[in-house]
């Protein structure tokens, strides 16, 4: 948040530079089951973000000392591809991606029935093909669909979206410009059936009132993204059912 407050990101009619209103998220497209080798996978676009998620497992936990005799562990690798940002991103994990991987794995722990698979590992791979602000939320949203696609028992699926503040306005789902020149960013993921928060970060500068408004916006949008996640999974299984019937 560099906070260039002279930047005009919301016009006098309350319209944002990409034509959205304050409480509108970017167009979300999700497709389940897009890779052949992975046990489960999903492709997601939100605005200009393009994200792939794949799940392998439950399978033998690889570094053996990481095994948990009471349940499966979730290992997540979030990776930005070298060409996904305007400058070339140096390949390999950096501090940012390690932190994001950790909090995404923790968010998924709440919903996956890990106790069914002692000593196993459930490996979640998130590849950011194109980044335009909000990739951790996009990655987590896609990963939830990939887990469900892999047939892993879950209490619920997790949608995630960010709210924030730019040009002095509380906005839903910041785009690149709003993120770069805005004043705050609040990524949130919830368990929709209980409205519990499983991922929450915040940076920038917000009053209590602004923060509460941002959380309200994000909660509303999470429920909308949830419907899109479910629709993607239904479409995938309708297609599979038809295929089986015809065989």
């Amino acid at each position: 948040m560099s906070g260039h407050s002279d930047m005009i990101l919301v016009d006098e009619k309350g319209m944002r530079i990409d034509g959205r209103k304050a409480d509108e998220h970017r167009h979300v497209h999700i497709e389940a089951g897009v890779l052949s080798n992975a046990d489960g996978s999903a492709y997601l676009e939100i605005g200009k973000n393009k994200v792939l998620a794949a799940v392998y497992g439950p399978r033998e936990c690889h570094p053996r000392h990481m095994q948990d005799p009471t349940k499966a562990i979730i290992q997540c690798k979030y990776n930005m591809q070298a060409f996904s940002v305007s400058d070339r991103k140096r390949p390999g994990p950096d501090r940012r991606s390690i932190e994001i991987s950790k909090i995404i794995a923790e968010a998924l722990e709440k919903v996956v029935l890990t106790e069914l698979y002692p000593r196993a590992s459930i490996d979640v791979y998130i590849e950011i093909l194109q980044a335009n602000a909000g990739t951790r939320c996009a990655g987590l949203t896609a990963a939830s669909v990939a887990l469900a696609d892999a047939g892993i028992p879950m209490r619920d699926i997790v949608p995630a979206i960010a709210a924030g503040k730019a040009d002095g306005h509380v906005l839903l789902d910041l785009n690149k410009e709003e993120d770069n020149y805005g004043q705050a960013d609040v990524p949130i993921a919830i368990v929709p059936s209980t409205d519990e928060i499983v991922l929450l970060q915040m940076d920038g500068n917000m009053t209590r009132e602004e923060f509460d408004k941002a959380v309200d916006l994000a909660f509303g949008a999470c429920h909308e993204v949830y419907d899109i996640q479910k629709a993607a999974l239904k479409k995938r299984y309708d297609a599979r059912m038809k295929q089986e019937e015809s065989e």
Binding site: E106, Q201, V215
Partner: peptide, 27 residues
């Protein structure tokens, strides 16, 4: 928080969840 009591950074950690009421109390 900063000197004015505004929020500047947050991080939720751990494998569990928090409710909105708990979030509010933490703030």
């Amino acid at each position: 928080t900063d000197d004015n009591g505004n929020f500047r950074a947050m991080q939720k950690g751990g494998k569990g969840s928090i409710t909105r009421a708990e979030l509010s109390r933490s703030l």
